[in-house]
């Protein structure tokens, strides 16, 4: 699905990441950990084309990201659901419209999708907040909304950056279950997280690989978790 080959990245100073290779096979489930500032968010951005690698190359769906034009990048993003660490919304539109935004911009027929939308909002526990504006939401509610928005297009790949950072244990289990369900349906999942308890909980239910960023590159974390 997504493949990084000997990728290096630098924001201008020294290299943040170098000679990093990663292959997200279809249907695989990965966790990404590492100290704050190690480059987890940067790595995810490389995966969905928000950043271009300084060296090496990134392939998504067997196409070189660097060779795609802007419209092709847009089409690629419809197949990759992203939960951003600092989730942003359209602040003038109610939550339900924000969650449905990927459908809107890709020209889907909203009347066909409305039951999907209602079910998804139910799952992330936001049904009662459907008409609220994003600035009125709590941090946890925003994160849940961001996850709902990321999966509404039923994308092939889901990249989540700290999706459970602001929610309680109960809710984080619930969100994890949603991601596990999607993985069972064949979606590829990559979650960046510090939450070791969450990772352990996931590993008991799915064949998950845990990757750690250190020394500017990826290491497979052992059974120590």
């Amino acid at each position: 699905m997504i493949e990084l080959e000997h990728v290096g990245y630098s924001y201008g100073g020294g290299d943040l990441l170098s000679d990093l290779s990663l292959r997200l096979a279809p249907g695989s489930f990965h966790f990404l950990t590492g100290p704050s500032g190690a480059g987890k968010t940067t790595l995810l951005k490389l995966c969905y084309g928000a950043l271009m690698p300084t060296t090496g190359r990134v392939q998504a769906f067997d196409m070189d990201m660097a060779s795609l034009d802007r419209d092709q990048v847009a089409l690629t993003r419809r197949r990759i659901g992203v939960v951003h660490q600092d989730c942003q919304f359209l602040d003038h539109l109610p939550l339900a419209d924000n969650i449905a935004l990927p459908l809107t911009v890709s020209g889907r027929d909203m009347s066909e999708e409305s039951s999907n939308l209602a079910e998804l909002m139910q799952w992330v526990g936001l049904s009662s907040r459907a008409d609220a504006l994003p600035p009125e939401l709590s941090g946890g509610e925003r994160q849940r909304a961001a996850l709902a928005r990321a999966v509404i297009m039923s994308p092939d790949v889901i990249l989540a950056d700290e999706p459970t950072g602001n929610v309680d244990w109960e809710m984080s289990q619930r969100l994890l279950r949603l991601l596990l369900e999607l993985n069972k349906m064949g979606k590829t999942v990559l979650i960046a997280s510090h939450d070791l308890a969450l990772i352990r909980a996931a590993k008991s239910q799915v064949q998950a690989r845990v990757l750690r960023i250190s020394d500017k590159t990826l290491h497979l974390a052992g059974a120590d978790l």
Partner: peptide, 16 residues
């Protein structure tokens, strides 16, 4: 700017 960035991130084409 924020609206445009969000739209771009959820896969809107430039034309849209």
């Amino acid at each position: 700017a924020q609206v445009i960035e969000v739209l771009r991130l959820v896969g809107a084409k430039d034309r849209y």
